[in-house]
Design a protein around this nucleic acid. Sequence first.
DNA 1: AACATTAACAACCGCCTGTGC
DNA 2: AGCACAGGCGGTTGTTAATGT
Length: 254
Amino acid sequence: MVRAPCCEKMGLKKGAWGPEEDQILVSYIQQHGHGNWRALPIQAGLLRCGKSCRLRWINYLKPDIKRGNFSIKEEETIINLHEMLGNRWSAIAARLPGRTDNEIKNVWHTLLKKKLKTYHNKSSQDSKRHSIISNSKYDPKVLENSYLSTTKDVVTSSQQSGSSSEISSLTNSPTEKITMKNEEMDYSSGNFPHTDERFWSANDVNCLNKKSKAKVQSRSPLNAMENVGVDSKIDDSMDFWYNLFIKAGEMPEF
DNA sequence: AACATTAACAACCGCCTGTGC
DNA sequence: AGCACAGGCGGTTGTTAATGT
């Protein structure tokens, strides 16, 4: 026996909510609360199913909903909690006041996954460098040549996109750049490396489209062009991202 | 300028779980 | 114990505006 749909489609509206519907829903809940979601639309005079009303209220109309961009801190929290809890969006949302599970899920699937992808690309570059180092018997001259050859394409693309920050990071001392961090990292208690605005602006901005760039840069007091000499911070953050994958046991596909 | 692609976000769908009878 | 129902959750899709070609 097939279960009936959650809402009978007959005569019920679907799709985007209009301002009038919002007004009806808000004023009804303010007056009566939402005892029974299924009965609510009938009592309030809305041509919606109860589920739709509940979703609209929880995700958009509730007065304590925090609108607007996620802060860097919030994004860090999401990443950390996601590592601990997985895709339990409601559990994550419960720890982020004013944010909904739907909103967190959306931001994960858009901005944060893209950041992970960015890191994945960079970590590939790093491992390429590392394999060269392994075979070079640590000859500084070989190291430098190898390093420059492996990063040439990245430098070129960065120059094309006009990122002085990326160029500066890649032209630092190679022996400094190729230092591998072997210490065990434990992020389960929330102790992950500090990731400040410089990380986002220096590493991500060139990988985002203009719309996203504006969003990221609007959050950052520093312009990407001014981010010179922040590589150690960036590398700490990169290690954080990399370890997320390692702990997950796989590199996700995007 | 027109069309294609991408990103962001709102909303829906179906399944699961808890609860009351 | 078994059933039905409501609410909650996570995955997915639809819509629209921005951006790229």
